[in-house]
């Protein structure tokens, strides 16, 4: 038995939990890579890129590193901060308190309290790395509890649907942000150390550097980085993998209405087919358009899914 309202809460809990992880990892990788980046990498641009990924206006950058990191991570006044997203995840979990396990609820609540505790101490850039580590460790714990303390039925399918949809979105957004960074490199520097640096940070932001390196057995470049993050159905951070998982969980959800030919499933299947049968050479000239089109498709699928199954 599951209320539609609870289904909605579980889906959004998954989305917020996943979003937090990407915000934290992206900001960390960007910021720390910039500290010893090749000379022409502009610090201002790094901060701008972090702010944009986290939904803040670019002009925030007249402030110091500390201020930017603070506002991204634990500012209560910023409704897009990691802390605010975690609070949203927690409020959704609280609303679904009778559906999820006590272990999962307590882990999410403790996670929030620990992060919130950083608001009581002075903040500097060293604090930021602690915060990111706290987030990544707790994300892993919570995903373990989702897999191991819930029924593998609708309840977990809804959370996982949220997680995979959100991950597909965030991977696409990170990719678009990096393509933008690379587009700003002066022509003379293309295919130089600085471009390699950007592809490396792209993969690290998606926690994919090691596996990509291992898969192709060479230093990441434009072609292998993009192919890996977009089209590899076996790697859990790739767009292809997450869409396939989203389809699997959506089927579980759709069965509750005996409706496996619904429009969200149709559009998701169509997008997966496009990813499966597109070759990188066909799209590498205008990667940004390709990535943007995928992103709008995913947004449309998520909205359709919500109105079809989760409205109340």
């Amino acid at each position: 038995m599951m209320l539609s309202r609870i289904a909605n809460s579980l889906f959004w809990m998954g989305r917020y939990l996943e979003r937090i992880e990407h915000m934290a990892r992206f900001s960390k990788v960007q910021y720390y890579s910039s500290l010893d980046a090749p000379m022409s990498l502009n610090k201002k641009r790094v901060l701008e890129s972090m702010l944009e990924m986290n939904g803040l206006p670019k002009n925030f950058c007249k402030h110091t590193d500390e201020e930017v990191l603070f506002h991204i991570s634990i500012a209560r006044t910023n409704s897009y901060s990691i802390l605010s997203c975690l609070n949203a995840a927690r409020e959704n979990a609280r609303g679904a308190r009778d559906t999820i396990s006590s272990e999962l609820w307590e882990a999410i609540n403790t996670y929030y309290n620990k992060l919130n505790d950083y608001n009581t101490k002075p903040f500097d850039t060293d604090e930021f790395i602690d915060i990111v580590e706290l987030i990544l460790a707790n994300s892993a714990i919570i995903k373990g509890l989702i897999d191991n303390t819930l029924f593998h039925r609708e309840e977990r399918a809804l959370i996982c649907e949220g997680i995979h949809i959100e991950r597909a979105i965030q991977i696409s957004r990170i990719l678009i942000a990096k393509l933008d960074d690379i587009a700003h490199i002066e022509k003379s520097n293309l295919e130089s150390a600085i471009e390699t640096f950007h592809w490396g940070t792209l993969l690290k932001s998606a926690e994919s550097f090691d596996m990509c390196h291992r898969f192709y057995r060479k230093v990441p470049n434009k072609l292998n980085s993009l192919e890996f993050l977009l089209f590899n159905f076996e790697f859990p951070k790739s767009l292809a993998f997450n869409l396939a998982q989203a389809e699997r969980h959506l089927l579980t959800i759709a069965k509750t209405k005996n409706d496996v030919n619904s429009s969200p499933l149709y559009f998701l299947g169509k997008l997966i087919a496009k990813i499966r049968y597109t070759k990188l050479e066909e799209v590498s000239d205008d990667m940004t358009t390709f990535a943007n089109n995928n992103l709008s498709d995913i947004y449309r699928i998520a909205a359709g899914l919500e109105s079809k199954y989760l409205s109340y």
């Binding site: 038995m1 599951m2 209320l3 539609s4 309202r5 289904a7 308190r97 009778d98 609708e154 959800i253 509750t256 209405k257 199954y309 989760l310 109340y312």
Partner: peptide
């Protein structure tokens, strides 16, 4: 189930909750 008022409705004098099924 823990329900809120918005999860319930009355039809022909019976009470129902809105579930995903």
């Amino acid at each position: 189930q823990l329900v809120e008022g918005r999860d319930l409705f009355v039809d022909k004098n019976f009470v129902y909750m809105k579930t995903i099924y």
